[in-house]
Amino acid sequence: MNADAKPALPADSVQSVAEGAIDGPLLIVLNPGSGAQDADDARRRIAAVLDAAGRAHEFIAVEDPAQLGGIAADCALRAAASGGAVVAAGGDGTINAVAHAVLEAGCRFGVLPMGTFNYFGRTHHIPEDLEAAARVLVEGELRPVQVGEVNGRIFLVNASVGMYPQLLEERETAKRQFGRSRAVAFVSALYTLLRNHRVLRLWLRCDDATGRVETPTLFVGNNRLQLEQIGMAEAACVDAGALAVIGLRPVSPLGMLALALRGTLGRLGDADNVFSFPCAALFVSAGGGRRPPRVKVATDGEVLWMRLPLQFRVAPARLQLLCPPPAP
């Protein structure tokens, strides 16, 4: 935690921008490759709102995705020292990378949603319209927001192992070929689901309960909106300070397609081939074996390799996020 950062907000506190919650400039980390919006047009629209409000700001464009982490870390340190805020302008993957740096530095955080699904922004009522989202940076209030963590890497929406990371990788390939839209994402997901998938044999420990499971994918959710949309009763647990653990029992490709249809209709939680439970911390291991295997883990759409065991938990620190003020 940076020594120059403002003290973190208590878990239930709120502070408005008008009350001096943010004294310094807004450092806007812009990912031009997020979503289908034109980056130059987006920049002009955001700047028009902030200029009209007299709000000091600076755009930092990320031309090379490999540099995103370093750019975000530099901006977070500057914001912590100046009393400003770092703003992530992009999709959930961009928001995740910037949020990681913000948590490390202890500064304030804002979001301009520019991705395909924008689960994080929508959950916290941040408009998908850019001008309206920019006004939140001027008129909003800071609220503490729960963050998930797996082996030291944060996630705001979800983390997963097994089939779901594969689905995300293939979806990203399809988006590069056919464009970034929800239709492309949907068709790509169907293609992935209709193939056979490796079954993972895992040991799970949650609180005092331990059990062995066989599953093609294990999903840990930290986003109430996404969980509600697929029909999981555990959606409410996120607001209570827990994570939602979801696993699928092994099924055929057609059975997987049926589960996907249930999720689309908001009825996944009713399926016999789904198990789920709330948990503040989950330990995942492979059981026996001399060398723990590596698995692909997805965090907010970004895929990387991790070696088992995995420890999912609610992170001890919370994001200090600029959210819209309540309606009068």
Results as ranks from 00 to 15, higher is better:
P127R: 01
A76H: 02
R122N: 03
N96H: 01
G91L: 05
A52C: 05
V147Y: 06
A81R: 15
R78I: 01
G54E: 00
A105H: 01
V145F: 07
E63D: 15
N96P: 04
R44F: 02
I46D: 15
G84R: 03
C75R: 10
A52D: 15
A61M: 12
Q146F: 04
T123E: 09
L112C: 05
A61I: 08
E149K: 00
A56M: 05
H57P: 09
E131M: 12
E58F: 11
A97Q: 13
G148S: 12
G148T: 13
A85K: 15
V87I: 12
A73L: 06
A42D: 02
L77M: 12
A132R: 14
A48Q: 11
R45W: 05
T123G: 10
A80H: 02
V98Q: 05
N96R: 10
P65R: 03
G70K: 02
V86G: 06
L103G: 03
N96C: 00
D41F: 09
E139M: 04
P113E: 04
Q67M: 01
F109R: 07
G106L: 03
E104C: 02
G110L: 00
E58N: 03
I95V: 13
D40E: 15
L50T: 11
L50N: 01
L137D: 12
G93Q: 05
R122Q: 08
E131T: 14
L130G: 10
C107L: 01
A42M: 11
A72D: 00
G115I: 04
V62K: 11
A79E: 08
E128Q: 13
E58A: 13
D74I: 04
A39N: 11
A79H: 03
